[in-house]
Write a protein that binds this DNA or RNA. Structure first.
Lengths: 216, 216
DNA sequence: GCCCAATTTTTGGTATACCATTCCCCTCGG
DNA sequence: CCGAGGGGAATGGTATACCAAAAATTGGGC
């Protein structure tokens, strides 16, 4: 792997900080201020800001400091609608193109989640959840789809993380994941599509609940 | 409208040049060279290059000049697969959420294409074709979907333009568009989905033909 | 005549300085 | 006491200078 540029590195650090909530939504992220805070010059910081803006984590305003994005329920639902379509597509393609090794990887991720659920490691559980879905898009054999899906997923990382915290339904998540894995192993596109669709619909409902709770 | 920044402006100029083929695929686009050629400093040029790279028109290589992208047939097909899923989704949503005015706009674009076909204005015809599809995604009521779809469409602008040049089947395009418009007006999601799917499948076939011809 | 290595050149990456615009606060006038 | 105007501070946008690394070229050795 080639050495990561400084701009990418601070972009990663910033992204981490945003996703973990260390930088609150709505707070401003000036070029100078943050550049000094992280000990770099404005140039790479400026580029890092553009990167995160393209990812949707920062909002650029003309002649004004960028702010940490604070997406509305409507926006999140819109994105999730797209993710749903892409994941269904991924499942369809994966049933055709996935190698056995890829499906094996997906099953391994699933079983890893089961263990993490038993141990109660919520953060790891959640991150593996993301990996699980990413692995499916990777198994589609469509690299551009994998990339795009990953971007959208990253964008919703925080809100999904927050809404998954309450996680009254880890069992349902695991059960649905299990069915999706079975569907992939049987190359049963219909089953995969159905379960994927239902799965994301539940996620959507969770997020709606999260927003409702937050506004109170 | 707020004044566009210099970086955006030269990004637009560069994009135009690339899409029109004034910059051949594979040719290198160094920061210094192009900055001087366009009479700006490296900083905005650098940013413009990043923008176009994110759009997929330029390929960044570590420690090497960026080059104008020259997508393979596989890559184009992958992207088109995604576009197909997104357009089908757009059609579904548009049948539910589109306003009558939006559908009216779509019909107007369609009829405009008919006129342009009669006049033989290929470039305008093609651009209106793009607008037609964009208008449908706009009618979905999902702004993020509209944005994403637009980006993917832009990325394939050039190859679609080239493959549409031969255009032995303008009649089929217009017929399918007409059916899609009818479907939208009737809010018949099934019809829209079917025709959209078939429409893009034909585009895919055209592009395959274009690549086959090019390689000979 | 060919290949390898050292050097030179060119590349992107980074830091810094400067500018125009805008925003904010303070003061002055009603 | 309130509002409008002005000045200063802070912002992002741009230009430029410098650096390290990598690629290309050239010269020497085999």
């Amino acid at each position: 792997m080639t050495a990561p540029t400084l701009a990418e590195e601070i972009a990663n650090r910033l992204r981490h900080a945003i996703l973990l909530g260390e930088l609150e939504p709505g707070s401003s992220v000036g070029e100078r201020e943050n550049a000094q805070r992280m000990g770099v010059s404005r140039t790479p910081m400026r580029e890092a800001i553009r990167i995160l803006a393209k990812e949707g984590l920062l909002i650029l305003r003309p002649s004004l400091s960028p702010v940490v994005a604070d997406p509305s329920l409507q926006q999140v639902e819109d994105e999730l609608t797209i993710i749903r379509a892409l994941e269904v597509l991924s499942g369809d393609l994966a049933c055709i193109h996935a190698t056995d090794a890829q499906i094996e990887t997906i099953r391994a991720l699933h079983e890893h989640m089961v263990r993490l659920a038993e141990e109660g490691d919520m953060l790891r559980f959640f991150e593996t959840d993301m990996d699980f879905h990413r692995a499916i898009s990777a198994a589609s054999g469509n690299s551009r789809l994998e990339e795009l899906h990953g971007q959208l997923l990253a964008r919703l990382w925080r809100v999904r993380f927050l809404s998954a915290r309450q996680a009254w339904d880890r069992d349902r998540v695991l059960k649905q994941h299990g069915l999706i894995v079975s569907g992939l192993e049987a190359r049963d596109a219909t089953l995969v599509r159905l379960e994927t669709d239902s799965h994301i619909e539940h996620i959507q409902r969770n997020i709606q609940g999260h927003f409702r709770q937050e506004s109170s």
